[in-house]
Amino acid sequence: MKKYNIKVNGTTYEVEVEEVGAAVTPTVTPIVRPAPAEPAAKPPTTVKKEVPAAAPITAGAQSVTAPMPGTVLDVKVTAGQPIKAGDILIILEAMKMENEILAPADGTIDTVQISKGASVNANDILVTIK
């Protein structure tokens, strides 16, 4: 008799095969293995940062929004600062990548709605330009 382990659809079977002349008679015995113990679940740890209250948006100001959820790594502008189209406003980390949020047009920064370290969702207002 020869013993073989055969895996079928994730289940392992121990098979004994006896060779008798030209005929083969297999015996199949399922091997039952206990499921691996799952580690104790740890509660998620989150750090909430204080986000300053959003400044009121001036009528006619253009909003620059977050294109995706992420964390603000750096704020490159301040309220009242003149900017040109294409200037870097915010560095946003999303999916382990740093994304530069650029000014869509020339103008002056009206309000900065977020701060460094803040978490933002897609379409959250980051800054306004007038």
Rank of each mutant, 00 (worst) to 15 (best):
residue 44 P to H: 11
residue 39 P to D: 15
residue 97 M to F: 12
residue 95 M to F: 09
residue 13 Y to S: 05
residue 61 A to R: 03
residue 124 D to A: 00
residue 41 A to F: 00
residue 120 V to T: 03
residue 85 A to R: 08
residue 78 T to M: 14
residue 17 V to T: 08
residue 11 T to N: 15
residue 108 T to R: 13
residue 45 T to W: 12
residue 29 T to D: 02
residue 45 T to E: 04
residue 71 T to I: 05
residue 94 A to D: 02
residue 18 E to L: 15
residue 108 T to W: 00
residue 55 A to S: 08
residue 46 T to S: 12
residue 48 K to T: 02
residue 18 E to M: 09
residue 14 E to P: 04
residue 37 A to H: 12
residue 107 G to N: 04
residue 87 D to F: 03
residue 46 T to V: 12
residue 34 P to I: 08
residue 51 V to R: 04
residue 3 K to L: 13
residue 28 V to H: 14
residue 32 V to H: 02
residue 93 E to Q: 07
residue 123 N to Y: 00
residue 28 V to I: 15
residue 96 K to P: 06
residue 87 D to Q: 08
residue 27 T to V: 05
residue 6 I to M: 15
residue 73 L to W: 13
residue 105 A to P: 04
residue 34 P to W: 15
residue 101 I to M: 10
residue 62 Q to T: 10
residue 104 P to H: 06
residue 59 A to F: 08
residue 42 K to D: 01
residue 12 T to Y: 13
residue 3 K to A: 00
residue 79 A to D: 09
residue 58 T to G: 00
residue 78 T to P: 01
residue 35 A to Q: 14
residue 112 V to N: 06
residue 36 P to Y: 09
residue 121 N to P: 04
residue 95 M to P: 03
residue 109 I to P: 05
residue 82 P to W: 13
residue 76 K to W: 10
residue 121 N to E: 08
residue 80 G to P: 08
residue 61 A to Y: 05
residue 109 I to Q: 06
residue 28 V to R: 11
residue 67 P to F: 07
residue 47 V to N: 07
residue 86 G to F: 07
residue 3 K to H: 11
residue 61 A to L: 06
residue 99 N to T: 05
residue 34 P to Y: 11
residue 25 T to N: 15
residue 88 I to G: 00
residue 126 L to I: 08
residue 29 T to W: 09
residue 110 D to P: 00
residue 102 L to Y: 01
residue 56 P to W: 14
residue 114 I to Y: 04
residue 83 I to A: 07
residue 74 D to H: 12
residue 79 A to C: 09
residue 36 P to C: 00
residue 120 V to K: 10
residue 49 K to S: 09
residue 100 E to A: 06
residue 46 T to R: 13
residue 83 I to N: 02
residue 117 G to K: 03
residue 70 G to T: 06
residue 104 P to T: 00
residue 24 V to C: 04
residue 102 L to F: 13
residue 9 N to P: 07
residue 107 G to M: 14
residue 117 G to I: 09
residue 92 L to I: 04
residue 52 P to S: 07
residue 58 T to P: 02
residue 22 A to D: 02
residue 5 N to M: 14
residue 61 A to N: 05
residue 76 K to P: 01
residue 80 G to Y: 14
residue 7 K to T: 01
